[in-house]
């Protein structure tokens, strides 16, 4: 049954970070459920979502970690960065403060992930153009200067949400293809699924990746 049409070949770990209230959980929800979650409660912890996507004909399972944005949890959420293949940094285009904090989030993302981690900047709430507090051009410039991919998206309308998640996966997949991402490195954030016969090892791999403490009990 190996190579059946329904299997996925890779697992990519993503983290979603950014200030409180910028819409991290709503973006995740929109991506996994294709729905907008109004009145989404603040995330107190780290939410977890999955979806299988297709990139260049390859099925890829995304494991997405949506972190609490509150400053007081920052020290704890940092333990979740490790082993992320993709990092989505979110700000709210209607709140400049969330944009101003980007460099701090970016520093964390750079320091706590591996050099090949694809970092994607998303300006959320693009549906609220009337209340815009950060221009597209400004954020684009910031993204270019820091070598980040960038889109403005809306978790409410779904605009560009799919694209951001898929584009990130595509870039990760490219780094696998050109060999710059070493799958054997513990922190690559990518698991290559062995074909059929070895599938059982997955649970073990997962357990390792799941636990933020270095020593899982």
């Amino acid at each position: 049954m190996s190579g059946g049409p329904y299997n996925y070949s890779y697992i990519f770990k993503y983290i979603i970070i950014g200030d409180m209230g910028v819409g991290k959980s709503c973006l995740l929800h929109q991506f996994t459920e294709k729905k907008f979650m109004a009145d989404c409660p603040h995330t107190i912890g780290v939410e977890f979502g999955t979806r299988i996507i297709e990139v260049c004909g390859q099925k890829i399972k995304l494991q997405i970690w949506d972190t609490a944005g509150q400053e007081r949890f920052r020290a704890v959420t940092r333990s979740y960065y490790r082993g992320a293949a993709g990092a989505l940094i979110i700000y709210d285009i209607t709140r400049r403060s969330t944009y101003n904090h980007l460099s701090s989030w970016l520093t964390d993302a750079r320091n706590l992930t591996n050099p090949n981690t694809v970092i994607f900047l998303i300006g959320n709430k693009s549906d609220l153009d009337g209340q815009r507090d950060v221009t597209y051009e400004e954020a684009k410039k910031f993204a270019d200067e820091n070598g980040l991919k960038f889109v403005e998206a809306s978790a409410k309308t779904g605009e560009n949400v799919e694209e951001a998640f898929l584009e990130t996966a595509k870039k990760i997949y490219e780094s696998i293809q050109d060999g710059s991402l070493d799958l054997n490195a513990a922190e690559s954030g990518v698991q290559k699924k062995p074909t059929a016969n070895g599938a059982r090892s997955l649970s073990a791999d997962n357990a390792e990746g799941r636990n933020p403490s270095s020593c899982s009990c």
Binding site: G45, F73, N211
Partner: peptide, 16 residues
């Protein structure tokens, strides 16, 4: 202290 309540194969909840 912030406690991390971990659900196996699922999310983590912080309890302050």
């Amino acid at each position: 202290d912030i406690l991390v309540l971990h659900l196996e194969s699922g999310k983590d909840i912080f309890i302050t």
